[in-house]
Structures are given as structure tokens and as C-alpha cells.
């Protein structure tokens, strides 16, 4: 395995122009900047409606230096397939095709096209930035919103259902590479995208993406909140390479150590205000059980 990228060895070239339209403290803006460095210039992006559409700018000004095809909400992965097919018939197969969608565009409205493309084995990277609700339309619940979270469509009691485990769904497609990452650990994300570029077939990378206005925390705490999700064992960094699961980076370092209590994470964000003590204890038990499995 190649050496881990550090802030000293990260390429200096920026592929995102300054002055993009993301909110202050946006986790996606960190991921997008590091992600594009990893994807490199020989990449074509596919983006459905999402915060990323806005981040990339309004016509005729663009914040991205990569060619990008904006597509309809449900069609992201199918559009990636189309670009791959066109590049193949035009003899330009050395170009990376990367789809980059939010949690709605991935796990909800986009899941059919994504499942189809993965079943066909098309050679692309699908990156899901998961900010755990429909943020671009104003914080409505999504399939990946955690249980108990207050959103504008679960405004009083919080979301009753569990978070959809999207990486597990993708792993069930038996694709070659599934990985998770977090905006709080962008170098880890950089290395995982670099690795994905070297693997044939569909690759899926799921990125935990703190969102100050949607989650209810101050814009200066994006990295702190993202780290707490990992340090409490709620969101885990891992890879599933050719079917083999392994914890990576900050999550791997938690093995055999005491994790921070999940309550420490919940306290940092107003979206968890409806969680009762009993509910928090239940979530802590779930996390402990999950980690007991990792430790075994």
C-alpha cells in the first residue's frame, strides 16, 4: 500500500476556484476541494441537483475547473454510464468518470440508477456526500437522516426511522471497492479516492459531511463535529476492498480503546434536541454492540 498523503505531500494545484457558493463552514467544500485534487484534471464529473450544484456556481460562472454534466435528480449513475460509453466509442478511456451526489441523490431518488450501474459493472467512481438530510431544499429528512433528528419534515419529535446503511447496500452489489470517509479527515478521503481511481469497475465512496445550518452548530466547528462522529463510533471510517472489510484511519485507532460517549456528539448540534436520555442510551448500546463486533 502506498504511503499516506500528508498536508506536505498533497498536490498544491487547486481545481476549485475561490468564491464558490457553499455556506460558511460547509463540510462539502472541504471534501470537494480535496476530492478534485485526488480525481485530477483528467476527470469528467456528473452532478445531480444538490448543494454541489449551487457550490459549483450559477451560469455562466463556474467554481469548478473540471468538465461537469449537470443531470436530473434520479439519473446520476446512468449518466455516468452514458459518458463512459461515449468515451469508449471515442477511444478516450483514460478519463475518469466521477459522479458526485448528495444523500438524497444517492440513497433515495438516485438509488435505482446507481444499483443498475453497479450491477452492470460500469467503470466509475460514485461519491456520496452525506449531510444526512435534504439540505439544498432546506433540511428535510432523507433516508440517511439518523433516528431522532429534527428536520423541517420531522419538526417536533424527530425522525422515527433508522439511518439507511448505504455503504452496506453498495457492498451487497459485490463491487470492488466501497469506502467511507469524513470531511473531518480530508487526507484520508484523498487517499481513498486515489485508490478508487486505480480499481476497475464501480467504486462507491460515502462521505460524512457536517452541515452547520442543517445540523445546528457554529460554522467554526465543522471539523470538530465531524471528528466527534468518528470518535464516538457513530460514523466509522472503513474500506471494503474486493469484499474484505477493514477499519481505517481514525476509526482503526479506536480499536481496543475507550470511545467518547455518543452524547458528546449529540450535544454539539441542535438537530438532536428531541433525543431523550433513554433514546441516547439505546443508541449508545447499539454503537457498543457494533463495536463489539469490530473488536471480535
Amino acid at each position: 500500500m502506498s504511503a499516506k498523503t500528508t498536508i506536505l505531500t498533497l498536490p498544491e494545484e487547486e481545481l476549485v476556484h475561490p468564491g464558490h457558493r457553499a455556506c460558511a463552514g460547509c463540510g462539502l467544500s472541504i471534501l470537494y476541494r480535496f476530492g478534485l485534487k485526488a480525481l485530477g484534471r483528467d476527470t469528467i464529473l456528473v452532478v445531480p441537483p444538490s448543494c454541489l450544484t449551487v457550490l459549483q456556481g450559477l451560469y455562466p460562472i463556474a467554481a469548478t475547473q473540471l468538465p461537469c454534466l449537470n443531470v436530473t435528480f434520479a439519473s446520476t449513475a446512468a449518466a455516468a454510464t452514458g459518458i463512459i460509453a461515449a468515451l469508449k466509442v471515442r477511444g478516450k478511456e483514460d478519463i475518469t468518470v466521477a459522479a458526485w451526489a448528495g444523500d438524497g441523490g444517492t440513497s433515495d431518488i438516485g438509488i435505482q440508477a446507481l444499483s443498475g450501474a453497479c450491477e452492470r459493472g460500469d467503470n466509475f467512481i460514485f461519491i456520496c456526500y452525506d449531510n444526512e438530510a435534504y439540505m439544498n431544499t432546506g433540511v428535510q429528512r432523507s433516508g440517511t437522516t439518523p433516528q431522532g433528528v429534527i428536520t423541517t419534515t420531522t419538526p417536533i419529535h424527530g425522525k422515527p426511522q433508522q439511518k439507511k446503511d448505504m455503504p452496506a447496500i453498495m457492498a451487497a452489489h459485490t463491487i470492488s471497492y466501497v469506502a467511507t470517509g469524513s470531511a473531518a479527515y480530508p487526507l484520508d478521503v484523498y487517499d481513498k479516492i486515489k485508490k478508487a481511481k486505480t480499481i476497475e469497475g464501480p467504486k462507491y465512496i460515502h462521505l460524512h459531511t457536517p452541515c452547520p445550518p442543517g445540523w445546528g452548530f457554529d460554522t467554526r466547528y465543522t471539523v470538530k463535529v465531524g471528528r466527534l462522529a468518528v470518535e464516538t463510533g457513530l460514523f466509522d471510517l472503513y474500506e471494503i476492498e474486493h469484499g474484505v472489510f477493514r477499519l481505517t484511519g481514525a476509526s482503526k485507532k479506536l480499536l481496543g480503546k475507550e470511545r467518547k460517549p455518543v452524547a458528546a456528539y449529540f450535544e454539539t448540534q441542535t438537530r438532536f434536541r428531541a433525543l431523550t436520555r433513554a433514546r441516547i442510551s439505546a443508541i449508545q448500546r447499539q454503537v457498543d454492540e457494533k463495536w463489539a463486533g469490530y473488536e471480535a
Binding site: 450544484t53 449551487v54 459549483q56 456556481g57 450559477l58 451560469y59 463556474a62 469548478t64 475547473q65 473540471l66 468538465p67 461537469c68 454534466l69 449537470n70 443531470v71
Partner: peptide, 8 residues
Amino acid sequence: PANLNTVT
């Protein structure tokens, strides 16, 4: 590079 079909 061009950003096609973006918000107008």
C-alpha cells in the same frame, strides 16, 4: 472544461 446545464 465546461459546466453544462447548470442553474441559469
